[in-house]
Computed example of a mutant assay.
Amino acid sequence: MTTKLPSTVANAEASLLHADALTYARKWVRMVRDEQIPHWGNAGQSWFDKQESQRFVRQMMRHMARSPSGMIDLCNLARAGLGLADQTARELILEYEHARELMPPALLAYNMELVDPRRGYRRLTSQKKEDRFLRDIAITVIIGDVCSRFRLKPHTPTPLETHEAGSRQRLQHRSRGFDSGAIPNN
């Protein structure tokens, strides 16, 4: 078996840069997966754990709700069906009621909507972004770090590129004898 060499020096340099960037990214992904990188001071917490991600999002929402505009945003997210925003708003309502403190206007209005018998509360049933929030942050930081270190430009594939990549993947699996129906479309 012979090794095909790059046709130009520029192509060879690009191949080396690609290999170095890929090795660097894989190292960071392993470190995140193996919980060697703490997030916001929480050593031993998983970037991929659903409960940990939800806890972190709730903590961020509580922090956001300290300002009047943040409280309005929290209540609007809850009205839009974001489950953790609703849960956080309800926790805040309970805390204000327990302390017998006056609620901020946005939270008071949301509380009134919750108890209004004419309104039906609906929850979204799809997978929620807050379940993957920490994972998405880890991926974004790794991509940003790789792009910065190797002076690359981040690129989001167009739908056509995604379709073409999926077609190439199916062709490769067919040529290896795999059933194309068993390959998930990404």
Rank of each mutant, 00 (worst) to 15 (best):
D20Q: 12
D20L: 03
D20Y: 02
A21D: 02
L22Q: 08
R30G: 14
R30Q: 10
M31S: 15
V32K: 12
V32Q: 09
I37F: 04
I37S: 03
I37H: 03
P38M: 11
W40P: 03
A43N: 14
A43S: 15
A43V: 06
G44D: 14
G44Y: 07
S46T: 06
D49G: 02
D49H: 00
K50F: 02
Q51R: 11
Q51A: 13
E52D: 01
E52R: 05
S53A: 10
R55D: 13
F56M: 11
R58I: 00
R58C: 04
M60S: 07
M60R: 07
R62G: 07
H63E: 15
M64Q: 15
A65Y: 10
A65F: 12
A65K: 12
R66S: 14
R66K: 14
R66Y: 11
P68Q: 15
P68T: 11
G70T: 05
G70P: 05
M71N: 06
D73I: 02
D73F: 12
L74I: 10
C75R: 01
N76L: 13
R79D: 15
L84F: 09
A85P: 14
D86N: 14
T88G: 06
R90V: 14
R90T: 11
E91K: 06
I93L: 05
E95S: 09
H98M: 02
A99M: 00
A99P: 00
L102A: 01
P104E: 04
P104Y: 00
P104L: 07
P105S: 07
P105H: 03
A106D: 10
A106W: 02
L108N: 06
L108P: 00
Y110E: 00
M112N: 10
E113G: 05
L114V: 07
L114M: 13
D116L: 04
P117D: 13
R119K: 11
Y121H: 03
R122C: 02
T125W: 01
Q127W: 00
K128P: 01
D131N: 15
F133V: 04
L134W: 05
R135C: 09
D136F: 01
I137M: 15
A138Q: 10
A138T: 04
T140D: 08
I142D: 01
I142A: 05
I143D: 03
I143L: 14
D145P: 02
V146W: 07
S148N: 10
R151C: 10
R151G: 01
L152S: 06
P154E: 06
P154D: 07
P154Q: 12
H155G: 04
